[in-house]
Amino acid sequence: MSVELDMTGRKVVVAGGASGIGRATVTLLRAAGARTCILDLAPEDAGGAQDERIAMDIADESSVQSALGRAAQVMGGLDGLVNTAGIFDPSTISDTDLSLWNRMIAVNLTGTYLLARHAIPLLRKQQSGSIVLLASGVALVPPGPGSAAYVASKGGVLSLGRSLAREAAPKIRVNCVCPGMVDTPMTRTVLHDNNKVRPEIVANYALQRAATAEEIAQAILWLTSSASSYVTGIAMPVDGGRTFH
């Protein structure tokens, strides 16, 4: 492990850290020496005994504010925030009723705003801080028909991240990771058919496969670490060559 990726002494909150990309991120952060705190609806399902775990509803402001405050208190401060919490639905716009639309925006976009709003004052108390938001490759190039509410919510995350990068500077860096298709429990029903990866989906990717959660977590780790100390406001595609940004 390089010196730049040594996270010893860093205190990082991972929202959505109980599964998928979030859980892989927690594993890598801890391996690099960071202290982590998982915020999730079901935090008891995640990590080992060394992880702090706090229940949080990302769509509820009081829950977000309380969870972040408690995390900072338990860890003795906050150096980093990673938000991997989110929901997905492949519905076309005609099949997206208002309740689905509102839920997608509430969790994916409003939840991101709530985390940033209440984390930034905590991060400003440190000498430096990093926020990494999980947008999506679909925020760069929509995948085709369907997923209208999801695409809209992730496009909002991308724009919010860019705005926050300017507002939070110079002490806090804000970046977005834009994954392509990742093989996680959230995407499995779309990616797989009879336990086999659907070839028409991976055909859109130059690398001809979906990513693992660990491959996305590697990008998150780099953006959280001092190795990316002069990087802020970017949208980093980790999409196996679907968008070629």
Rank of each mutant, 00 (worst) to 15 (best):
V157I: 14
A119R: 00
C37E: 09
E167Q: 14
L115D: 03
T36I: 07
I234A: 05
V141G: 00
R124I: 01
A71R: 12
R103T: 07
L122S: 03
V190F: 13
L78F: 09
A55F: 06
E44G: 07
I21V: 09
A148C: 12
V13Q: 04
F244Y: 14
S229E: 11
G80T: 05
K171G: 06
T224A: 02
T232V: 08
M181A: 13
H192L: 15
Q73I: 01
L207T: 11
G20S: 06
A67K: 08
L134V: 12
I172A: 07
K196L: 11
A217E: 04
G180K: 11
G77R: 13
S225N: 09
T189E: 15
P179C: 10
S94W: 13
A227I: 04
N194H: 15
A116T: 05
C37K: 10
L68K: 10
I172S: 01
L133T: 02
S2M: 14
P143W: 12
A227Y: 04
I120V: 15
G47F: 01
D193T: 14
G144I: 05
S147G: 07
A152R: 12
G156Y: 07
K196D: 14
L109W: 05
H118V: 03
Q126S: 15
A206G: 11
P145N: 11
D6V: 02
V82Y: 03
W222M: 13
G47Y: 02
